[in-house]
């Protein structure tokens, strides 16, 4: 979603000066990011689409307040997170996602899963549709704070500072949660990446996690 060629400051100035139609062009590169961001919070397609639309509408209405200290994309992500959280509060969803709940598992170390004969696994394995579906499910089932981090950092490739700004947490927290989230995904996906699951039993018994 990098758009280094675009003069966004110029676009914004023209929109504010009355060329409103340019707003369509301004937001086009970020449609996906906004949708995935709100989806990671509200977790259903209908609400996510509503939230994504509301995010863009709000961004339009408040465009004059965008001062350019942050990147436009980060500003937009921040609005998206706020929209998503508002929606969630209204809907009073499942406990695990409540923003006020203590964070489950935040203090626990996630141990990655060992893989046997990893080197035999061809890259084509990554092309398997089944693996994509499993990954989608695995991300969807992560606790909210981890799902949001993964979405911003690894799906939408915001950097650590941008992710921290959008989620209103510090950069260290982003790194800590991202690590746990990635390890959870590795653990979950490992069985699908193995070729010979039960090999070398003796070998594994000597490993540090046993």
């Amino acid at each position: 979603m990098a758009t280094t060629e675009r003069d966004e400051a110029g676009l914004i100035a023209r929109i504010l000066a009355g060329q409103k139609e340019l707003f369509h062009e301004l937001i086009r590169p970020y449609e996906g990011m906004v949708y995935m961001t709100v989806f990671s919070i509200v977790r259903n397609e209908t609400d996510a689409e509503d939230c994504a639309q509301d995010t863009m509408v709000n961004a339009y209405r408040h465009l004059g307040k965008f001062r350019g200290e942050a990147k436009f994309s980060t500003w937009l992500a921040t609005i998206a997170v706020n929209e998503g959280r508002q929606k969630l509060r209204k809907a009073k969803r499942a406990k695990e996602d409540s923003l006020d709940e203590p964070i489950e598992g935040d203090d626990q170390q996630i141990t990655p899963a060992p893989l046997t004969d990893w080197r035999e696994i061809p890259l084509e394995a990554l092309e398997r549709k089944e693996l994509r579906e499993t990954l989608r499910t695995a991300v969807a089932e992560l606790p909210g704070i981890y799902r949001q981090i993964v979405t911003l950092r690894d799906l939408e490739e915001l950097n650590v500072a941008e992710t921290a700004a959008a989620l209103h947490i510090n950069e260290n927290m982003v790194k800590v949660r991202l690590h746990r989230a990635r390890m959870m995904l590795q653990k979950r996906l490992a069985p699908y990446l193995k070729t010979t699951a039960r090999a070398k039993k003796e070998f594994w018994r000597r490993m540090p996690w046993n």
């Binding site: 949708y35 689409e49 490992a190």
Partner: peptide, 29 residues
């Protein structure tokens, strides 16, 4: 192996084909 598998999962996570937008989302927006 853990490092490689984690990397590969990240490649897959960042792949547009893994997380798709709903059909017609952009038009409706």
């Amino acid at each position: 192996a853990i490092l490689d598998s984690t990397r590969n999962i990240l490649v897959l996570t960042g792949d547009d084909r893994t997380f798709e937008l709903p059909v017609g989302y952009s038009e409706r927006l």
